[in-house]
């Protein structure tokens, strides 16, 4: 297997930002595959779970993750699978090898999306300035992922931990828009604690 070079292939060149109670950065490149199929099929589900290294039959609006992979719910018949260790084409081939032809699909979207990590005490405020989804902990606990809107961009919000730290998955062409939006809100004067 070729050496995975996570420094390449990201729209924001791993930009970082720190200030106003917000820490942001673009995550490293990773393999991303969208799988569509019948997840009520126990055989398909167990085979895919084996390949992904994680259970793929996750509940609506949730995800599971370990050191080498993650599985996100996108719809009743759709999952997003990340691999932090494998090349995209390797992950794709492994998943396809257990999928019945003609009744399911796997598509490499590694270069179609990037993710931005937003953390810090004001992270929730920054997020809520752009999305209609209620990101309060009572509505958006750890382990949740939701597809929603940020500004005019379609995004997936991922609740990584309640420190808090969120990931925003966004399409490549909207990454700079979302990044600038987040920065603009983070730099807004009223977010900083009054001295």
């Amino acid at each position: 297997m070729a050496e995975l070079n996570p420094v390449l292939h990201t729209p924001l060149q791993h930009a970082t930002f720190h200030g106003a109670g917000v820490v942001m950065g673009e995550n490293l490149f990773c393999a991303k595959v969208i799988v569509r199929g019948n997840f009520d099929d126990a055989q398909l589900t167990s085979r895919l779970s084996e390949q992904a290294g994680l259970p793929v039959n996750v509940a609506a609006n949730t995800f599971v993750e370990n050191d080498s992979a993650a599985v996100f719910w996108l719809g009743p018949d759709e999952r997003m699978i990340y691999s932090y260790a494998k090349e995209p084409q390797v992950l794709l081939a492994e998943l396809r090898s257990v999928m019945p032809a003609g009744r399911s699909s796997a598509v490499d979207v590694s270069d179609y999306y990037t993710t931005i990590r937003v953390g810090g005490v004001n992270a929730r405020k920054v997020l809520s300035a752009g999305t209609p989804f209620d990101v309060h902990g009572s509505n958006f606990p750890e382990g949740s992922c939701v597809q929603t809107r940020f500004g005019t961009a379609s995004v997936m919000l991922v609740m990584q931990d309640s420190s808090p730290a969120f990931d925003i998955q966004v399409r490549w062409s909207f990454a700079e828009y979302v990044w600038r939006y987040l920065r603009r809100v983070a730099e807004f004067r009223t977010l900083t604690p009054q001295s």
């Binding site: 609506a60 609006n61 719809g75 209609p132 597809q147 929603t148 809107r149």
Partner: peptide
């Protein structure tokens, strides 16, 4: 703000639909 109950995702803001 109007909330719409998606049969798959639950209640979400109308601007998502």
């Amino acid at each position: 703000m109007i909330l719409i109950n998606c049969p798959y995702c639950g209640e979400r803001d109308q601007t998502e639909f």
